[in-house]
Design a protein around this nucleic acid. Sequence first.
DNA 1: GCCAACGTTGGC
DNA 2: GCCAACGTTGGC
Length: 156
Amino acid sequence: MTQRYWLMKSEPEEASIDDLASAKHQTLAWTGVRNYQARNFMRDEMHEGDGVLFYHSSCAVPGIAGLATVASTPYPDPTQFDPKSPYFDPKSTPESPRWLLVDVKLDRKTRLVPLTEMRQMAELDGMQVLARGNRLSITPVSPKHWKFITQHLVEA
DNA sequence: GCCAACGTTGGC
DNA sequence: GCCAACGTTGGC
């Protein structure tokens, strides 16, 4: 199985790179995804060891905040069964869970690479997160884009 | 706070 | 199965 690469958006008010850094084993379950495309990536296409660009969204300076790896096989998102959770899904059952997730483990915090900076890089043309109207919270990243970001952008 | 883009829902 | 209405995302 060849390694793949992903960009995963998180609102820092909910789960920031520092939350990931201070989590047990520097690992967080990627709870709260309620979009089928994003779920399908976690359920069907992500594998342990895949590279993850940890991205801060819906904040003052959106951008890449760290590097991480996929750290589990898919399993049911526990928040879907919790009536007190904002992610509760009354139509989902433990026998047939609708929402699956993976764990994400911090590799390292990086400088914040702003979305505006990424947009200026010709090397990143075609990157899905830069596409007009993109809202998907998990998007694939090509090896070429991953290489450019990790080798040239992430260091100051 | 605005609004473009896109996903979901539900009437028919 | 179509599609209008509505809700959400997320940059700006």
